[in-house]
Design a protein around this nucleic acid. Structure first.
Lengths: 203, 203
DNA sequence: ATTTGTATTGACCGAATCGGTTATTCGTGA
DNA sequence: TCACGAATAACCGATTCGGTCAATACAAAT
């Protein structure tokens, strides 16, 4: 492990991305060290030099990804003061930004949760649920309910936005056009805000 | 192949589902005949007795899945007459019903589109795009535009609903509670209809 | 230029698994 | 009891697996 951490940041990222991509695509068992080494452009022996065993590499990736994920959550807290729709928009932009900057972590986390080996996957599932609750509390605040034509719509609207978010993240996948998606998302939010808010709160 | 088609329908489905599940989880290369045979509860030799080669089995699954998918599209055409929101609701219910009855085909089709071997995957991508366009034309009809408070919202609202649909399908995954999701979907549509339609079209 | 220490790797290991074959066993109807 | 087709256990050579190790490439120090 120290051997790996002594590498330059770029090389670390290169190797991590290759491993994250392989593991998230194929799962722990079917992902092979050979594939990862080839994708990273280094020799298989180096990987074992850095991480010792396949399981060690995997566990390192799990920890690195969860801390990175938690950090992303922390960042979102900064924008807790604006209006409901603005907060949602900020959260989505940050999510997509994070996805652009670090494309493999989200897919990897999801793949870990699907692993049959229960030990780690349960822990990750907890982390994801916790993150979702965190997001819920951060977005949906009583102070905004008064702005709705029908305040009782708010929870269902929030769940709707979550569905949209999942759908959009799923559609992104490859090197898709982020800006176009962000733009469409902004238009969707603007449209929904217009219809769900009372006139006097449409700024 | 004739050997396989001579089997009882239940056994055919059992074997198909095992193969679809393995191929969609692991992709063509990493999915092994051993895994499929074990999951289907038959011997590996039988699989080769039925299909000859791995590639043959895969191609059979591709064709079977595309015809099944096309059949599902045809069925949807029956509901082309109702109101916009009713059509969308019907389409989602049918989609989820089909997903419940035939859980592995949708995931398999998506996995085929992701295959690096371009030959088949391109054909499947075309089929998916075609299906999406078919759905679009089926749902969004000029006759309904007059019911909207702002007719220009309709296309974006439709895209929003597509995002929601993707998100929900993605959330279903396992043996989740279909009825709960259908119910939530109905509530979401009712809410959106209320806010987007003119009062006189709320029946 | 030579030595030294280290980062990287090609070549290799036994074991497992791959796709595919074959010879035997099993089940059933005559 | 025999015969026949369906199913499979055992096996095939080839490849790949996770992992090791000795040789090489390379940079710093002398």
């Amino acid at each position: 492990m120290e051997k790996f951490l002594a590498l330059s940041d770029e090389k670390q990222t290169l190797i991590r991305n290759a491993a994250l991509s392989c593991f998230s695509q194929h799962g722990y068992e079917k992902a092979s060290i050979n594939d990862i080494a080839k994708m990273a452009g280094i020799s298989k022996a180096s990987l074992f030099q850095y991480f010792g065993t396949k399981q060690n590499l995997y566990e390192y990736l799990v920890e690195h990804s969860s801390t990175q994920m938690k950090a992303a959550y922390q960042e979102q807290a900064l924008y807790a003061n604006a209006d409901f729709f603005d907060r949602v928009q900020q959260a989505i932009i940050m999510k997509i930004d994070n996805l652009k900057k670090n494309p493999y972590i989200a897919a990897f986390i999801i793949s870990v949760a699907k692993e049959p080996s229960i030990e780690i996957s349960e822990h990750i599932k907890d982390l994801m649920q916790e993150g979702e609750k965190h997001l819920h509390d951060l977005m949906l605040r009583d102070a905004d309910l008064v702005k709705f034509k029908h305040p009782e719509d708010a929870p269902l609207l929030f769940r709707t936005l979550m569905h949209i978010g999942y759908g959009i993240v799923d559609e992104i996948e490859g090197v898709s056009d982020f800006d176009r998606i962000v733009c469409e998302m902004e238009n969707i939010l603007k449209m929904l805000k217009y219809h769900f808010y009372k006139e006097e709160y449409l700024l």
